[in-house]
């Protein structure tokens, strides 16, 4: 996707995001993915990690929030094009003069932003129900990390959505992709626990760098250089993902127009 398009069509991006938020707020599966599941994982992790260190509650809040972000990206953003297809609105969106990827970007923006509720809910749960005193060690750096994480997740979602609609074989593995990323991205435990051959896989996952930046800025576990490095990695992955997604969208629309299969893709 061309970054210029986001700037040119910023009003469209925001409108699509608003409509998506209004549309999805009544969807019980989305409520489950962004509120219930992360909350249950947070409760579980709070019980399991009792006594592992004074920062573990904050670690759990951020980690369980990230599980909500990833599940939402996988199941909601991943199906953002499929969803239009099922509703019969895909043809109209593709025919619109605005680039199709701008619309999907707006949808992903809504999904990722609403998924931040996962973290807020987990925070409230840990503070109000479990009575933890939670402090973010570096608030400004944490906000920076959240913003870059949002960009990294949206960009990653722009790759997943066209892949899922073009290659149904990949989408059928959707259910199996949720927990592996929880594991490989180190949402709730360090990846150092995993076999060393998995480390390179973690490094190529944007959620891993988001988790690092958010954990280090919230618990104070990392120094400034490490945080900046994680930010840099998220930016690089975002640029690469946007570039790759532009090719994927072009391929998807080309296939649909040449084969006249937009209704059946």
């Amino acid at each position: 996707m061309k970054f210029k398009n986001i700037v040119t069509y910023w009003r469209t991006v925001l409108t699509v995001a608003e409509i998506t938020l209004r549309h999805q707020w009544n969807d019980s599966f989305i409520l489950f993915a962004i509120l219930i599941q992360p909350m249950i994982i947070a409760v579980l992790a709070l019980f399991m990690l009792r006594g592992t260190g004074e920062d573990y509650a904050m670690f759990v809040v951020v980690g369980s929030g990230l599980t909500g972000l990833w599940s939402s990206l996988l199941f909601i953003s991943g199906n953002s094009i499929n969803g239009e297809h099922w509703q019969g609105t895909l043809e109209a969106l593709v025919a619109a003069p605005i680039p199709f990827e701008v619309i999907v970007f707006g949808k992903n923006l809504a999904n990722v932003v609403q998924s931040l509720l996962s973290m807020t809910t987990s925070y409230l749960l840990a503070a109000l129900i479990f009575g933890y005193s939670l402090n973010i060690t570096s608030p400004l750096l944490f906000i920076g990390s959240v913003l870059l994480s949002v960009l990294a997740f949206i960009s990653f979602g722009l790759i997943i959505a066209p892949l899922f609609i073009m290659y149904r074989g990949i989408q059928q593995w959707q259910n199996a992709m949720e927990f592996p990323v929880y594991i490989l991205a180190g949402f709730l435990f360090p990846i150092a626990l995993l076999p060393s051959w998995t480390t390179p896989i973690s490094y190529i996952l944007p959620p891993y760098w988001a988790a690092r930046a958010l954990h280090e800025t919230s618990t104070g576990a990392g120094d400034f250089d490490k945080i900046i490095f994680a930010w840099g990695m998220m930016l690089i992955f975002s640029v690469v993902d946007l570039f790759v997604s532009s090719k994927l969208f072009k391929l998807m629309l080309h296939k649909a127009r040449v084969d006249a299969t937009l209704e059946t893709v």
């Binding site: 579980l44 992790a45 399991m48 990690l49 009792r50 592992t52 074989g169 059928q172 593995w173 959707q174 259910n175 199996a176 949720e178 927990f179 592996p180 929880y182 594991i183 709730l188 435990f189 360090p190 626990l193 995993l194």
Partner: peptide, 28 residues
């Protein structure tokens, strides 16, 4: 009840879930 969906939802998903909670428990 299709080979790919079955493998993803009935074999890999539960296995990944078991590995996730085992590592979390092991860490704890």
């Amino acid at each position: 009840f299709r080979p790919t969906t079955y493998a993803a939802s009935k074999i890999l998903m539960p296995l990944a879930q078991m590995i996730f909670f085992t590592f979390l428990g092991s860490y704890a």
